[in-house]
Design a protein around this nucleic acid. Sequence first.
DNA 1: ACTTATTGGGAAAAGGCTGTCGCAAATACC
DNA 2: GGTATTTGCGACAGCCTTTTCCCAATAAGT
Lengths: 332, 332
Amino acid sequence: MANTIYDLAKAAGVSIATVSRALNDHYAVSEETKERIRALAEEMDYRPNARARSFAKQKSGIVLFITDLHRNVAFENPHMFEIMTGISQYLDEKNYALLVKHVTTKDAPQLIKELMIREQADGVIIHAAVLSKALAGTLHHLDLPHLVIGKPDFPTPICWMDVNHEQAGQKAASYLLDKGYRRMAFLMGDRETDKISAARRDGMLHMFAEEELSFTTLYGDSTYESGIALCEKALSMPERPEILLCTNNYLAMACLQVLRQKDLSVPQDIAIMTFDNYPFSMLTQPQLTAVEADMFDMGQEAARFILRKIRMPELQTQSYCTIPRVIERKST
Amino acid sequence: MANTIYDLAKAAGVSIATVSRALNDHYAVSEETKERIRALAEEMDYRPNARARSFAKQKSGIVLFITDLHRNVAFENPHMFEIMTGISQYLDEKNYALLVKHVTTKDAPQLIKELMIREQADGVIIHAAVLSKALAGTLHHLDLPHLVIGKPDFPTPICWMDVNHEQAGQKAASYLLDKGYRRMAFLMGDRETDKISAARRDGMLHMFAEEELSFTTLYGDSTYESGIALCEKALSMPERPEILLCTNNYLAMACLQVLRQKDLSVPQDIAIMTFDNYPFSMLTQPQLTAVEADMFDMGQEAARFILRKIRMPELQTQSYCTIPRVIERKST
DNA sequence: ACTTATTGGGAAAAGGCTGTCGCAAATACC
DNA sequence: GGTATTTGCGACAGCCTTTTCCCAATAAGT
């Protein structure tokens, strides 16, 4: 059906090797021959069969991204999208493409199988949420460039990239000190399982070690509803905090809601600051001051990493952290 | 390096054909042979080379998605993400994968070239925003299953899939009639260029043709800022509308903000309804009643379409529309 | 003028899998 | 027991490039 390199070679009166070289701008072909063949290719609407090429070169120009994004991801986990967009954009620039594959649970066997089957990819980026120990093991022994987004919750030699949550806490803390806040409440999820928030908390405590101030951590879970309760709790403390630090935007929005109902104005009566800046948090009233890691940027960084690894497989690599920054808006 | 089918065949003492058949669960192999080979494959950690397979079958199991998503897409165009997630999820189910490629402008030549190069894909889904006439032409003459998401803004024989905005208007209108609203203001973008909103408006007007009521359309642009102005304008009308219909969520949020400042409560004093439901619009106070097209669903539908086309290329197909529905929440 | 580089291009191998065809052995049928 | 049918499997072509190895022809060097 479609023209092959043979058709083109015959029409041009040259060998297929020459056609290949002309089209790939190989040096050992005269400029005029190249031009002639290119023109003919255009005319005959010849396009090299990408599958054959991919096979011949043993490279596909594809990076696989495995994640658990699902239905409402833009809402429930906007970061994932930003990361993905970052990855994709960098890959686009470098003439690679992104292959997206979802998996639901940590069902490693199934996942690995997928991974293998789609091994057309020159490299893999995996969202930590779907990484199991078994998978990490497989990955490690596979000679396929790979990177995990998010710090795995078990020790492993494979490379990962994540936000440095402890440093986020430190950045937040020094901002707060600058601003002169002395009584603070930190609203987070479960004491044991919410490791990310715990890291933020510890980062802040670390900075506050030498300071004379009051810092209370309130535990709940990460939902909007829990935020309502946590906020009430914070407000009923003997000494009302000057600022509510929320570990995510839902908690922060819940706080805004509670404060509005109680006719407390932000930030005059009480301030709010949040971690984990969601793109739409700019729409709140007032806009939330947030500690933000640039996830898009992290995505780009991840893509850069994987491409380097693809080009230089023997390269020794290590895990990376991204450091967030404070975005001051109207709630502090 | 990695084991090939030859290694496995030799180790198993059978021909490569038998190995291939055993692994692909072909009928002409005895169950015991299959089992033996599968076990051996497992043991030798054999994985078929996907690039070679893709080449041999002339199928890759990949669908290409071309769009213009960029940095803040989750914020600026959450629908695109929902669509993409819908596509991806359906493809996952069917053991296909999604290849994502971004393009910035309508630069057809460049785009087409990409498209060709990556033609590993068995089919293409293109976001209408990046579709040029030239590209549509190329696509039409290409024997590659394709589908456009969003109605092209020029006549073309190629298939597309979009939300039926006029019907959205009609649905909205009948909801409003049921609820007994008689004085309405519709806030939309530019009179000439905002075609989508115009279709909604016309859909509503069509339903209202026989009715005795007041319906005013206010033109501005689609931004939050414009929403502020439009809302002020609506409120200063001689007869204040009972409900503000907003063509998107930014306008609706702007209205909420203005009304809050004026101490008008929603929906008691004045109601709000919006088209184009964004996932995060559930977080507003009060939650917005919206006319929503299920974009995730549309994505799935698009994927189903393209897969059918891949399996049966000769199939005659036509363009589709998705019909939105009203999601009643607290603002009406 | 004769040897040595350099350049342009051809022939053919390689890459790993799938799928068709054909053959032998095993089973079924009369 | 001989023919017809099925079953299990091997041989081999085909998929379309890229790439290596080689040979001519031309250009450069002495």
